[in-house]
Amino acid sequence: MTYSFDFSWIGEYLPVLLKGVGITVELILVGAFFGVALGTLCAWIRALGPLWLRPVVGAYVEMIRNTPFLIQLFFIFFGLPSLGFRMSELQAANLAMIVNLGAYSCEIIRAGIQATPRGQFEAGASLAMSPIQTFWHVVLIPSLQRIWPALSSQIVIVMLGSAAVSQIAAEDLTFAANFIQSRNFRAFEAYLVSTVIYLFLAIVLRQLLRGAGALLFAKRRAAQ
């Protein structure tokens, strides 16, 4: 093997890398928060919401879950401007991740809601709480607790999938790696560095999600 490794470029391109990391982190924080919020709303509709809305949400979920993320991204960034919805690369990337995670988390959270013992709904009702109050105060937190590991994994998957946004020139970590190797032709080193950073981000994200779970579900408890 005659290839000699050269990482001396890191100093020079550090600002590019850091900017990429920053954008990837921003994408995942915004995407995770609003994606899970959207997923929770959709899960409520599909499990307990108005009957006429359920097929609408069902169609959205199936459409997103059965098409490639890259196509969804292209559709939002290149397709929607034809209808007059113009947005920046970053806005399009954020929107695509929210819409994507919304659909996947909807199905995960719905499973948690539907595993709720009927007695919990009845207890809420017998205390004169409305169905929405019962959902919000009684059903939601134990439901999220039930599916938190699955939801955490899905959030990490979406974070890793965010690499696709480099294809619409959103300047994330993958965009930075592409940019660097196109300048210095150090493809192996550039992608190795970005791989290590993604790995690090994924580990940190998992720990954060575990911490959020511990905070949200003060103690581990099985539903009665």
Binding site: P117, G119, Q120, E122, A123, G124, A125, S126, L127, A128, M129, Q133, H137, V138, I141, P142, Q145, F217, A218, R221, A222, A223, Q224
Partner: peptide
């Protein structure tokens, strides 16, 4: 249901809330 309370065979306490919070919840929400 504000006039009539109900107690169930399977207790149906809210598992994510303490005993105190279980008793407080409906007072505050309803």
């Amino acid at each position: 249901r504000l006039k009539i309370g109900m107690i169930f065979q399977s207790f149906n306490l809210f598992p994510h809330l303490t005993a105190g919070k279980n008793v407080m919840l409906s007072q505050m929400v309803v």
